[in-house]
C-alpha cells in the first residue's frame, strides 16, 4: 500500500517536473530567439538557423508534398462517394 502511494507520488512529481522544465525552456527559448535573428542578432546563430531551415524544411518538402497529394486524393475520393450516397436524401 505504502509503495503504491509512493509510486503514484513519484510519477506525479516526475510529470510536474517535466511540465515545469518545459515551461522554463519555453520562456528561455522565447527570450533567446532574438539572438538568432538575421541583423539584430549574432551572425553565426543566423547561419546555424538557415542551416536548420534547410534541414527541417527543404529536405522534408518532397515527403510532405507526397503525403498531402495522397491524402488529398483520399479526401476527394471518400467525400465524393459519400456525397453521392447521400444525394437522394438531400435533394
Amino acid at each position: 500500500m505504502g509503495s503504491l502511494i509512493e509510486g503514484v507520488g513519484r510519477r506525479t512529481l516526475n510529470q510536474l517536473g517535466y511540465v515545469g522544465g518545459f515551461t522554463i525552456q519555453l520562456w528561455e527559448g522565447l527570450r533567446a530567439i532574438g539572438t538568432s535573428l538575421p541583423i539584430l542578432g549574432n551572425r553565426y546563430r543566423w547561419k546555424a538557423s538557415v542551416n536548420q531551415m534547410l534541414q527541417i524544411g527543404v529536405s522534408a518538402l518532397p515527403m510532405i508534398a507526397l503525403m498531402a497529394v495522397c491524402s488529398g486524393f483520399i479526401l476527394a475520393l471518400q467525400g465524393a462517394s459519400e456525397l453521392r450516397r447521400l444525394e437522394p436524401c438531400i435533394t
Partner: peptide, 12 residues
C-alpha cells in the same frame, strides 16, 4: 539554450 535551441526554434 541560446546556442543550440534558439536557431532550431527560429528555423521551425
Amino acid at each position: 539554450i541560446e546556442f543550440v535551441l534558439a536557431p532550431k526554434y527560429l528555423a521551425a
